[in-house]
Amino acid sequence: MEGIQLENQLTYFKNVLQIINCILVSRMIKEIRIGGFGGQGVILSGLIIGKAATLFDKKNSVQTQSYGPEARGGASKTEVLISDEEITYPKVENPDILVVMSHEALLKYHKDLKKEGILIVDPDLVHIEVISEFINENKIEVYEANVTKIATEEIGLKIVANIVMVGVITKITKLISIDSVKKSIIDSVPKGTEEKNLSAFEYGYNYNIS
């Protein structure tokens, strides 16, 4: 009797392990989460990436977002999944890539990052040192890009910081092609602002990332 029980338990654990393994293997999906505060255009950046992946790179992508009741200043988050296969479950639990544009978002989301995941931050908006232990333990690849400063100083428009960040994301992750992102930006930003946004993207893409 005991032998059977033990065997059952073993089979159960084996199954659980298999499931976990399968989730890792079967989800050949890259998951990006971008967090910041309302008004930064976080959601637009997710939309641009998702659109670039689907309409222009011909991959599959789903973009979701969550936000609180505040129109400006509250926490804002977007998640983008990119895959060659069909995407069913649209939510990101453990992102491969976390992009944060506010300290609050850094504190809130960093723990969800996958081991050896990528963390991209605007160092002027966060105190990265507070999570240095987590970064070391999980071998997180950290990239710092002063996107808000670039937007303000180079373009003269603070609000395009999100597009500078899209440039940085494109360069680092290589999940989407540069041409597709450019097409997606033209297709997504308000008419008449295409040039400024493309220039913001170029600054981000060509940024000498540390």
């Binding site: 939309l47 998702g50 689907t54 992508s61 789903v62 973009q63 979701t64």
Partner: peptide, 9 residues
Amino acid sequence: EVIGHMREK
């Protein structure tokens, strides 16, 4: 809300 706000192709 998920379907309403989600973006897909």
